[in-house]
Design a protein around this nucleic acid. Structure first.
Lengths: 351, 351
DNA sequence: ACGCGCAGTCAAAGCGCTTTGGCTTGCCCG
DNA sequence: CGGGCAAGCCAAAGCGCTTTGACTGCGCGT
């Protein structure tokens, strides 16, 4: 609980030497270094972070700007991401600064972070179709990594993303392989890039199979439970209801399941459901949980990659990097051939 | 994008005067102040946060230590809390530092935060029965506010808590008033203080009504979906199954609902369900959602109070304060008289 | 006319660290 | 024996801010 000066006086050394000893510089003899380290521990000394920052110009802090939507809501995937990124920050000696702001104050927040020199870099969450943030951050000279991608210019910055297009194409093919032709999509907001790519994948697979894309079988909305419920209820009430549905999030899937059950239908028998599942740690839908067939991708893993990439970039070890994670289809009991279709030996798609 | 020195030279003033003008000190004439403020804006000047911290000794940063459980999970209530607290930090000019650590490294993290002088104070989450953190923080001299309470000595520090005991007592009384006598409890882990208090409230109400507390009707576990499902399945399989169940979290309630439906039972008719609902913003169970009868309390609100109290404390405007929030019972369609009981005009409890 | 107080300003001393540029040793080798 | 060199250490100069203590005028009361 002292400062460098006192510690160095106590040791009969200069501040220079003590500082160097503690920071692992080679100009100090190993005997001295050990003596210093011991003394530091004994006196419970640790450098004042502000002083160190001022002297080095590095904050060793990563900023996360979290926009808050209407209803004070933060995207629940965020916790998982944070858990992953946080672990990396810890390991590599960085701090995590989180700024919760109204969506319209986001750019001003980045500007302020730069002006006050509060962070060494930032992680950008939830890119939208034409996102101004990469441009802004570039012009500010603030290193950043995007979780997800924008639609254009995604090679001008580093990102970590899931191959949403392929994931949804494969899920759709899987359903088609089971014999489904009326396949609905309960998507997230399509100004979010990932949602748009998911729809593209879905449509791609339909077209391949020569199935017309029916706008009446697609909904795009917030990915929360009540919204999933509402969308599915509407689909089921239509003239020509779907026999299968692809859902963009575990939360929406809860609502969808509810609606299906309320209609007296059985998931996997009367109607097939596949949900994208960001592996929300607290829900744990999946083989062990509600038996849903899911497309999985670890969001905590994405957080870890983002954090590592950003730090590497800040420390000058790495330039622009792209990382495309593949999601995997995990069959559960919520999928099967459409009702009324005989299960011939060879009709079902690969397990 | 300059520093104080350059700005003051450009203005033909001393650094002292410029600094004072910007920080609202009265020793500067209003004309000068305005001139300084304009120039600062024009040159996009803002003080370097590290330098300011070093000079003042205040970090204007609040720390949150978030323990990560097995399976890398962060309690999902945390997002809502953060949203509330974050709004306050913003408004009052504070930063939020989040440290995600293994549960067993928590105390070391607090020590480090103090040693490095990284934060002005911390928020303590999820107190357990005999929690070492208040004592530790006191001895470190680090201001803090606890979200929740420990069992003893809860008057030696500031806290914000929900009256869990009363909330569960009232919910239990409500069910008893409807005619139920076999009431189960799907609780959280009872080393968490709030869970313990909930059970106390539940037992209290049962005793009042002369109903024996049956250990077979109580489960204590993690508050996640699959666990709720499991607990409820077990209850329903027992010899003398409950006619009503009290659930400690919205997430568990999802699992409970699932189990109930799988048994072909109807919530509100065959079995009554009341869930504690921390108003998880992304689930929105409740009158508009799944129709559950819930006990509600805003967790974002608790976050706001914690943040305000802690900052007041740091700035020396306030000492130890306790705040007990009351939860409210919001009737939905998941509760009703037990099956087989005639609904006489006057039997049901207050709406 | 004199001194006093006050408004307004400034120079300089920190805050606690890192880092540059020397300054001693002691040792090796021709 | 002496020059060269590396190893080991140090003094001092920042980093960009806040804050103390002192210094000017100037108006005012007596």
């Amino acid at each position: 609980m002292a400062n460098l000066k006192e510690l160095s006086e106590k040791l009969g050394l200069s501040q220079t030497t003590v500082s160097r000893a503690l920071n692992g510089y080679p100009e100090v003899s190993e005997t001295t270094r050990q003596r210093v380290i011991d003394a530091a521990r004994e006196h419970n000394y640790a450098p004042d972070s502000s002083a160190r920052r001022l002297a080095t110009g590095k904050t060793r802090t990563i900023g996360h700007v979290v926009p808050i939507s209407k209803h004070d809501m933060i995207n629940p995937h965020f916790t998982d991401f944070i858990a992953g990124a946080g672990a990396v920050y810890n390991r590599r000696g960085y701090d995590m600064l989180i700024s919760v702001v109204d969506a319209d104050k986001e750019t001003e927040t980045y500007r302020a972070m730069k002006r006050n020199r509060r962070v060494d870099g930032v992680i950008v969450h939830g890119p939208v179709a034409s996102d101004a943030r990469p441009g802004l951050l570039h012009s500010l000279g603030l290193p950043f990594v995007v979780h997800g991608r924008t639609l254009q210019d995604d090679d001008s910055y580093s990102w970590v993303d899931v191959n949403n297009r392929r994931a949804f194409a494969e899920a759709t093919r899987y359903l088609i392989g089971l014999g489904h032709r009326r396949i609905a999509l309960v998507n997230g907001w399509e100004h979010m890039v990932f949602a748009r790519r998911r729809r593209e994948g879905y449509e791609e697979a339909l077209r391949e199979a020569g199935i017309a894309v029916d706008p009446l079988l697609m909904s795009s909305n917030e990915m929360i439970e009540p919204v999933g419920h509402e969308a599915m209820t509407a689909f089921l009430a239509s003239d020509d209801p779907p026999t299968a549905v692809l859902v963009a999030s575990a939360l929406s899937a809860l609502g969808v399941m509810g609606a299906v059950r309320e209609h007296g239908l059985g998931p996997g028998t009367d109607i097939s459901i596949i949900s994208y599942d960001d592996k929300l740690s607290f829900l744990d839908i999946g083989p062990d949980g509600m038996g849903l067939t899911v497309i999985r991708s670890g969001i905590g893993e994405a957080g870890r990659h983002c954090a590592d990439m950003l730090i590497d970039m800040i420390e000058g070890r790495r330039g622009i990097v792209h990382m495309l994670l593949e999601a995997s289809l995990v069959p559960g009991t919520s999928t099967g051939p459409p009702a009324g279709v005989a299960v011939s030996g060879k009709s079902a798609a690969g397990r």
